Amino acid sequence: MKLRQLAMILVTTYTSFIFTAHASAPQPLFSPEQEARIGEIAADYLVAHPEVLVTVSQKLLAQQQQRQLAKFALSVMENQARLLNDKDTPASGPDDARVAVIEFFDYQCVFCSRFAPELEKVMKAQPDVRYIFKEWPIFGGRWDASLQAAQQGLSVWKQKGPEAYLTYHNAIYATGHVEGKLTAADIRAAAVKAGAGTTEQTDNTALLEKNSNLAEALGLTGTPGIVVMPVTGATPATVTVFPEAVTAEKLQSAIHKAMPSD
Rank of each mutant, 00 (worst) to 15 (best):
Q63D: 14
A245C: 09
V56R: 00
Y107W: 13
G197P: 01
A81I: 13
L154W: 04
C112F: 12
P236M: 03
L61T: 15
A194N: 03
E135C: 01
T232M: 06
A189Q: 15
E35F: 11
A43D: 12
A190V: 12
V122C: 03
T167Q: 04
K193D: 00
P90K: 00
S31D: 07
V241N: 02
A62V: 04
Q63V: 14
L208A: 00
G225L: 12
A234R: 02
Q5V: 12
P50V: 02
L60T: 09
E163Y: 03
Y45E: 01
Y168K: 00
R4M: 12
L83A: 09
F30K: 07
E33L: 14
P117N: 01
K2I: 06
W157V: 07
W157I: 06
G219E: 10
S31V: 02
A164Y: 05
V101K: 04
Q148L: 15
T205A: 13
Y107G: 02
L207M: 13
G39T: 04
A100W: 02
A215Q: 05
H169R: 04
G222A: 14
L61I: 14
P260E: 14
G153L: 05
S261M: 10
N79E: 09
P236I: 09
D128S: 13
L6Q: 05
L166K: 00
L154R: 13
D203I: 08
L119V: 15
K87R: 09
G176R: 05
G140C: 02
S16N: 14
P94A: 06
P260A: 14
